[in-house]
Computed example of a mutant assay.
Amino acid sequence: MMAAMHRRAAGRPDVATIRTEWEIRDERFRGIGGDRFVQVLFEGGRWLEGPVYSPAWRSVLFSDIPNNRVLRFDETTGAVGVWREGAGYANGRTLDRAGRVITCEHGTRSVSRIEPDGTRTVLADAWDGHPLNSPNDVVTRADGTIWFTDPAYGIDSVYEGHPGETETGGCHVYRVGTDGAVTRVANDFDRPNGLAFSADERTLYITDTGRRHLRRFTLGPASTAGTAGTDGPLSGGEVIAECDAGGYDGIRLDAAGRIWGAAADGLHCLAPDGTLLGKLLLPEICSNLTFGGPRGNTLFVTATNTLYSLMVNVTGARYPDATAQ
């Protein structure tokens, strides 16, 4: 792995960088590349998570979970400031089709949405009458449904939330319908974490950090008994990839359907069938990533204390926080 050594970007003495290091595992990865140096945008966090890019704001929002705050990187100025303090020990987030921020909150054991006027709406905080554990990561679908994972990291200790007990019978994956109903869609995980839809939204990839692998699910046919326009239960769930460096955390897809996953040694790039194509090596444990920038080809990566960015020659897929044209 590369040494954690910084240099200053030419013409930008305020921006530290590290040399980009790609590790090729499959010939299909050989054409992927980008900037020669990865930019270090922010280094003052404790455990950074949940990046999402807002095209309207030209900004990245990301969580500093132990410090109970959400930070904002302004792409136009390079400045990083506090967006929300006392943020419910927020973790993962996404944007809905209206550009509103949807966030998983450990401290409140809920999934919430920030309205245009700044007010907070709770979208989910219980299943079958039982409080959730600590929602972790979230994605939305074109039919208006919201899908999220619910491991127990936020109730395990005071580090990422408030100690508590699991009352749902385990760590599961849920869907919030357009009618607000919360449905459990998968109940056989240890620690479900990152999740992402394929471009056609018929396939859902979900990581299980506890078991260090990635699973692939297929959405079933439309259910006449459920919310209109919502597909039926998930099927499949086969393991398609095992992580060889820690456990997979957050994931995103690019426009070619490749899966980019955060791991202990950087970002892993996988083919849709789970084959490891290559890695972007980074000097810290990576938690999550998002594609952003004006053309959707800038990777923003949260990794332990640091927010990194790298412009690449691939674009993010068309799902809630992607901007590929």
Rank of each mutant, 00 (worst) to 15 (best):
G236Y: 05
R216G: 07
G229H: 10
D190S: 09
E238G: 14
L195M: 08
A228F: 13
P233K: 09
P192L: 00
A199S: 14
R202F: 08
P192S: 06
I251Y: 08
F217G: 07
R216W: 05
L234S: 03
H213R: 15
R211I: 00
G247Q: 01
L204M: 04
G232H: 08
D200L: 04
G220D: 02
T227M: 14
A245Y: 02
A245P: 09
V239L: 02
Y248Q: 07
C243P: 05
G220K: 12
C243T: 00
G237V: 08
Y248S: 02
R216T: 13
Y205W: 13
R211G: 00
S198L: 07
D249L: 01
G220P: 05
G246N: 01
T218R: 15
A196C: 13
L214T: 07
A196Y: 11
T203M: 04
S198D: 10
R191E: 11
I240W: 11
E238N: 14
I240L: 06
G250C: 04
Y205N: 06
Y205G: 06
I240T: 07
P192K: 01
G236D: 00
A222Y: 15
A228Y: 14
D231H: 15
G232C: 06
D231E: 12
I206G: 10
I240M: 11
C243I: 00
F197D: 02
I206L: 03
D244I: 05
G237W: 00
P233C: 03
G229L: 05
R211K: 14
D190W: 00
D244C: 10
A241R: 08
G210R: 09
G194D: 06
H213N: 15
T230N: 13
P192W: 01
R211F: 00
P221F: 12
R202W: 10
T224F: 15
R215K: 14
I240D: 06
V239D: 10
A245T: 03
A225S: 15
L195A: 04
P221N: 10
V239G: 10
F217K: 12
C243H: 04
L214N: 04
A199C: 09
L219C: 10
G247M: 02
G250R: 04
A245R: 09
T209S: 11
G246W: 00
T218S: 13
R215S: 01
G237E: 01
P221D: 10
G246S: 01
A228P: 14
P192C: 01
A245N: 12
T209P: 03
D200C: 03
R212Q: 14
L214M: 08
D244W: 11
H213C: 13
A241F: 03
E238A: 15
L195G: 09
A196W: 13
R211W: 00
V239E: 09
S235R: 15
F197N: 11
A228S: 14
R212T: 01
G210Q: 05
R252M: 07
G250D: 02
A245C: 09
T230V: 15
R212Y: 11
G236W: 03
G232A: 03
P233A: 04
G194I: 04
